[in-house]
């Protein structure tokens, strides 16, 4: 059986500047995987490139051996909270219900089954009592949980989460950890962009160290070593970003 996500030779540029160089990796099934690296290392970019949100210059990505176009329904996404306007006139339930839209197809509208699913997902993240609230009236952690519930409603086999732990309260943090554990028990694969080195080893089964290129990927205890972290966060790779600047200059 092919791996859930296989990335081959992926190079991505933002505004003509290469930000990811030749990423080659295959993620194993049923694990919670952290993507860790310094600011500007291209963590979110990697996630978005894998999901086809950013065009890549070279390489390909396969989900269970198939290209993304045929596998969209297998992929759930939890974007960063800042990516939407929280004044938008929708309730918590409306947002979670959106998670079911992908499966419905054109013209079909969510029915009873979908609404029940959405209630279950809300319960899973402990937000059932907020379901009729407008999203503007939620705290940061609650907003994060709404996004998680929406992703759960997608019922995907693979989940991508972009910095779910950043700036959330303790209750949300433990809710997310519980959720990650459950998803893992159900044999799903979860990729989490994470920036906090302290908590990384306790959250993740495997870790991908990233700084414009893949520094290391493997089980947490093998990868989370001083030497490799030094390499990820250390100065030797600045040449890559300098070279990226020059590439951008000539392409401009």
């Amino acid at each position: 059986m092919p791996p859930p996500i296989e990335v081959h030779d992926l190079t991505v540029s933002y505004e003509k500047r290469p930000v990811l160089w030749n990423i080659d990796v295959a993620f194993p099934e049923g694990q919670v995987i952290g993507i860790v690296g310094p600011n500007g290392a291209g963590k979110s970019t990697l996630l978005k490139a894998i999901m086809g949100l950013i065009p890549h210059e070279s390489g390909w990505v396969k989900f269970y051996g198939e290209p993304l176009a045929t596998q969209r329904l297998l992929v759930g996404y939890v974007p960063q909270r800042e990516s939407v306007d929280w004044d938008f006139p929708v309730t918590v339930r409306d947002v979670v219900l959106m998670g079911t839209y992908g499966k419905l197809g054109l013209f079909r509208r969510p029915g009873r089954a979908e609404r029940e699913l959405c209630d279950r997902c809300l319960e899973q993240v402990g937000m059932q009592s907020y379901s009729r609230r407008q999203i503007a009236n939620l705290s940061g952690g609650q907003r994060q949980r709404v996004f998680l519930a929406r992703a759960l409603a997608q019922e995907s086999r693979i989940y991508f989460m972009d910095e779910p732990f950043s700036g959330v309260d303790a209750a949300t943090e433990s809710a997310i950890i519980d959720l990650l554990r459950q998803l893992k028990q159900q044999g799903r694969t979860v990729l989490v962009v994470h920036h906090d080195l302290q908590t990384a080893p306790e959250y993740f089964d495997s870790i991908l160290l990233l700084n414009m290129r893949l520094v290391a990927f493997g089980p947490t205890r093998d990868v989370f070593t001083t030497e490799l972290l030094q390499k990820t966060y250390g100065g030797r790779l600045t040449i890559l970003s300098e070279a990226a600047e020059e590439v951008a200059d000539t392409r401009r």
Binding site: L53, R72, P79, V84, M98, L106
Partner: peptide, 22 residues
């Protein structure tokens, strides 16, 4: 009415909608 869900999700969170294929 017909395209409500596409219009809604495109308006609320276009990036996410793209990952779902909307």
């Amino acid at each position: 009415r017909l395209f409500y869900k596409e219009l809604l999700s495109a308006a609320f969170d276009p990036e996410w909608s793209q990952t779902v294929g909307l």
